[in-house]
Amino acid sequence: MSEAVSLGGEPILRTKGLTKQFGGLVAVSDVSLDLYVGEVHVVIGPNGAGKSTLTNLLSGDLPPTSGEVRFEGNDIAGCSADHISRLGIGRSYQKTNIFLPFTVFENCRLAAQSRTPHALRVFHRAGGYAEINRLAGEAMAAAGLAHRAERIAATLSHGEQRQLEIAMCLATQPRLLLFDEPLAGMGPHESQRMVELIKGLTADHAIMLIEHDMDAVFALADRLTVMVNGEVLESGTPEDVRSSPAVQLAYLGGEEILHD
């Protein structure tokens, strides 16, 4: 294991022995990892390695079977998704998951609204909260969608929808971001833009990124974890992982696995 890029201090999120079983199938097995603010931690592995399940465990979409998840010191394993989101963990989905009939702005406004204590005030016009509107606007701008504010989300291009997904995450002001294949289905140009976008977020966020695109992986990763069959095969700096014999044998040598 390497401490090369650790900026020191406590990890913002730490899992210990995290395990998820579906019936007899072990999707995530005994995973322990640390995420730090200022770092992009990329998780790679073949399809079915348990990467998305891992994300779901951290975001509360699924409850773990056993193990510990500590976020800023508090155990959040088994907490509901909305609770975890309010604690400061934002996530994007592998399959675009946005409000298709709403405008880009309304998508972001709703996301920002979830952070305010006004949520159950039923008599004030929703558009009248300057703070919510400001957060939504900033998130759109950060994700490069400011010029699309009034477009209906369903009419955006695929790449823009992926950007919107990120913008909604940002509008909830998370400290930890979980991105599940944000580049999926994107062309080279769009991918480049997304990589820049994620890079720009690194300074004040902790980011866990699941990605298949190897160019993006090595462009972004401060730390790399390889998962196979639900288990962590290797974890460390990209250089360490690249030179690990186990990984070379099982993964990086087999080009065909990389690209499916």
């Binding site: 975001s59 979409d61 509901s80 998704a81 909305d82 609770h83 989101s85 309010r86 996530r91 989905y93 998951n97 946005i98 409000f99 709703l110 996301a111 979830s114 952070r115 949520a119 909604m168 909830t172």
Partner: peptide, 8 residues
């Protein structure tokens, strides 16, 4: 998605 955004 609403749940993931933090809405109870």
């Amino acid at each position: 998605r609403m749940r993931a955004l933090g809405f109870p």
